[in-house]
């Protein structure tokens, strides 16, 4: 099979895994079929879904190196964009369905609550990365592009803290994600220097 075909097929699989389930979850929540609290269900689903996409995205380069599948790197951007897309759904669902489009309340929460502004900070980084993801912009930014996109690592840590702080007590689930995240970051520890970010 040609690499181009492999890339196309993998991208198709990514779309099939990420998109229909999101639509289905919204369908369930809109029709009050998603448990007793359809709002919480959709916010939780999109938040965790975004985190899953991010972790898969961070696994691509180690896997590509380990299995010597250079073409796999061509699929990474799509997964990263899905992570951003889920984060958009997460944020919009929070403002719309949880806060009832009460922007005063949103601003008040944003300034007062650590986990909300931390989440927004992480979202802003993802937004920047998504906006600069097209090849044309990548070429334009040259060496700055890599530095900018290394900010996915601090963002991933912010996202984890946001998840951890949103919990009442149960910390088992966040810690499982932390172990996976730290492992993925550890694989890059030699590559990452302070100069990678500025």
């Amino acid at each position: 099979m040609k690499n181009q075909t492999k890339i196309r097929l993998t991208k198709l699989v990514i779309h099939v895994l990420a998109l229909p389930i999101l639509v289905y979850q919204y369908y369930l929540s809109v029709n009050d079929l998603n448990g007793a609290d359809p709002v919480k269900a959709i916010i939780h689903f999109t938040g965790i879904g975004g985190l899953h996409c991010l972790l898969v995205c961070l696994s691509i380069s180690p896997i590509a190196k380990w299995l010597k599948l250079a073409w796999l790197m061509q699929c990474r951007r799509l997964i990263g964009l899905y992570s951003f897309f889920y984060a958009c759904c997460h944020l919009i669902s929070f403002i719309w369905f949880e806060l009832g489009l009460n922007f005063d309340l949103f601003l008040a929460e944003l300034f007062k609550r650590q986990y909300i502004w931390l989440g927004m900070l992480a979202f802003s980084i993802l937004l920047l990365l998504a906006l600069t993801s097209p090849n044309s912009i990548k070429k334009h930014l040259r060496s700055h592009w890599q530095i900018l996109h290394n900010w996915i690592y601090p963002a991933s840590i912010l996202i984890w803290i946001h998840f951890y702080w949103s919990r009442k007590a149960d910390i088992t689930e966040p810690f499982i994600y932390l172990i996976i995240l730290l492992f993925l970051l550890f694989l890059r520890v030699k590559k990452i220097k302070i100069s990678s970010f500025i």
Binding site: N31, D32, N34, P38, I42, F97
Partner: peptide, 11 residues
């Protein structure tokens, strides 16, 4: 948020 019957658009 008062949990009653109703989906996302009816909160």
């Amino acid at each position: 948020r008062l949990i009653t019957s109703g989906g996302l658009l009816n909160q």
